[in-house]
Amino acid sequence: MMSSNFRAWPLFLLLTVLSLPLVTMYVYLFVDTVTDTTAGSLIPDRFTLQHWRFLWEAPETGRVSIWTVTLNTFVFAICTTLVNVSASVTAGYALSRLNMPFKRFFLGGILTLHAFPTITLIISIFLILQMIGLYNTLIGVILVKTALELPFGIWIMKGFFDNVPWEIEMAGLQDGASRFTVWWKLVLPQVQPGIAALAVFVFLSAWSEFILPQVLAPSGSAQVLSTYLSNLIFDDVKPDFNMFKSVGVFYALPVIVIYLIFNRQLMNIYGGGTKG
């Protein structure tokens, strides 16, 4: 808010100082990927594309190609998004609008699970996946990630459906449409922005996920970018931060692109009651 009664520049100064460490890290994150710096100096002095060689060089023995890993990450994130959004859209509508027995119980359950810290379950999920043979598979991680994000998705979608005027549905029924047609043709178009926001949210969340793939699918063939990068960092005796950062920027690119495009929706969904 701009008000002529208060001066803005002291705040501006304060925020700038406070943001300096973060900005420094961001700037060096990008600059270091294409430059070299003489040891002991802070100012990069040579331009190079060496740090990006992981993109075109054959992987070291024992490592998987970055492209396989990227493909895995996309498959993981997109499948999670698709399954999660479809289940959230139907369940959110049911809880928002439809008559059913035990509705209170379901709603309370979803809300409890929404607040419930899912990561505590990782030990038993690890054992379950081992027992049913989905350990070390992408499918297993997708299912688990979908399930853990589902209460949030359902809750958010219920909120979006709650905001659709009842009269639209009533009018649809009067016009002779079945409850399903009303949902499909009249209600869903109204919550399209909500669906898009949820999809972006789930995609980003899956794209960034680290613990689940690390624990549930650690082997090379099911590796995703987060585990790939963290393995790179942990395995190295003499860390090559320029290379780590290049992989990191490569990994972060879709996130940044999505952030730039869906800025508004993201703010909305992160602000609309989410987990910390």
Partner: peptide, 17 residues
């Protein structure tokens, strides 16, 4: 059911799609 009653309704806020 509503669908089979053949009743037309004009709602207060019109409920246009």
């Amino acid at each position: 059911s509503s669908q089979k009653r053949n009743v037309g309704v004009v709602f207060q806020n019109y409920a246009l799609y």
